[in-house]
Design a protein around this nucleic acid. Sequence first.
DNA 1: GATATAAAGTGACAATTGTTACATTGGTAC
DNA 2: GTACCAATGTAACAATTGTCACTTTATATC
Lengths: 208, 208
Amino acid sequence: MLTSTKNIFPSFSTELVKEIETNAVIQSFETDTVIIRTGQYIKNTVLVISGKIKVYREDENGGEFFMYHLQPGQACAISMICATKNEKSQIMAKVVEDVELIMVPLPLMDKWMMQHRSWYEFVIDTYRSRFEEVLEVIDNIAFRAMDERLEFYLKRHAEVCGCKELKLSHQEIATELNTSREVISRLLKKMEQRGLVTLYRNNIELLK
Amino acid sequence: MLTSTKNIFPSFSTELVKEIETNAVIQSFETDTVIIRTGQYIKNTVLVISGKIKVYREDENGGEFFMYHLQPGQACAISMICATKNEKSQIMAKVVEDVELIMVPLPLMDKWMMQHRSWYEFVIDTYRSRFEEVLEVIDNIAFRAMDERLEFYLKRHAEVCGCKELKLSHQEIATELNTSREVISRLLKKMEQRGLVTLYRNNIELLK
DNA sequence: GATATAAAGTGACAATTGTTACATTGGTAC
DNA sequence: GTACCAATGTAACAATTGTCACTTTATATC
């Protein structure tokens, strides 16, 4: 596991990797597991070794608005932020591809900031990249109509899965964009007519 | 200025306040000044001593979507994040009430993280509170219709100005919510009919 | 007071999005 | 094959939001 930690987090110093190895716990979760719920107290900072996670913002009526993916080599910025203050989670995170996670207990997160330059830089960089990603999400919902938002959504998913075949149902997309299935079906049909996608059952092929 | 710094940032240690006093530059800007533009390189971390700032996300077509206020005792999280990597600004910040700012040069921002526990905690707390604020913005545009978003917008402005009389034109609100003036006029009229506000020229009085 | 101007009001209509209700299709289990 | 079910298609309509054109009102200036 040590060598793989070093591979997945190449910026970490050898001492930091050792610290992680001796102190942090590795946990595995299967696809569809909800790792963190809105309102739950966060006791660990989460680093992704393998697999994929989707992070959502929830509302009172059961809406699940998709914000961003977490992939190997990345960390949950929210878990860092909340961990330092022992606050409740503001987000919900769901496994979309079986994951192995490094769970760093709250006090270590803070301690390492002072002791390990590479940890400090990793944390700051995580804040930065997540903040930027969230700002991009704001761009989309503030400035763009649903057709463009859908295209952006599909592109992001294609990037993350590294393929052009998206195994998503219309309902799933609708839920994550907080709209209705009919709207998504309608817009996808238009995209198909424009030659951007080919539609199958539970499968959308991106053509461009 | 030293004593006032300590008053406005009470969590800062005496040594940190001294460091700020000797190293940081104080700058004043008048209302309506744009302090930071999208795409501009950020060379300082900005702390607010007095006055008020509004932070916006811009799009290519001139849209200015309002995100949050910065008030005395607060710092611009984006300027911290960008400063550490010498990155371009992702936001635009405009003075809405004459401000005095402490400009902390980029290298110090980083250095103090290791040397001053109170600085470290301030920075982390700034990240946390801004991230939470941005998530709340996402809630509003992702889950709520324009009428609710307008109410939320007015409430936030009332909180910040500490009064019930908002000196805002319909056009200004429309721009900051990325909609049209007519839509805002329409929704404000409905709010007036519901007894939530009284409308004047360049002035909206909140009744509840 | 007359005039100019920015702000706000308004009605009509278009476009987008949301909702309802139901039909069709593809895949799975029997 | 048949039955069943989830996914998708679709039409009709409602609601919200966006746009256009124009009017009215408040305020400042002359």
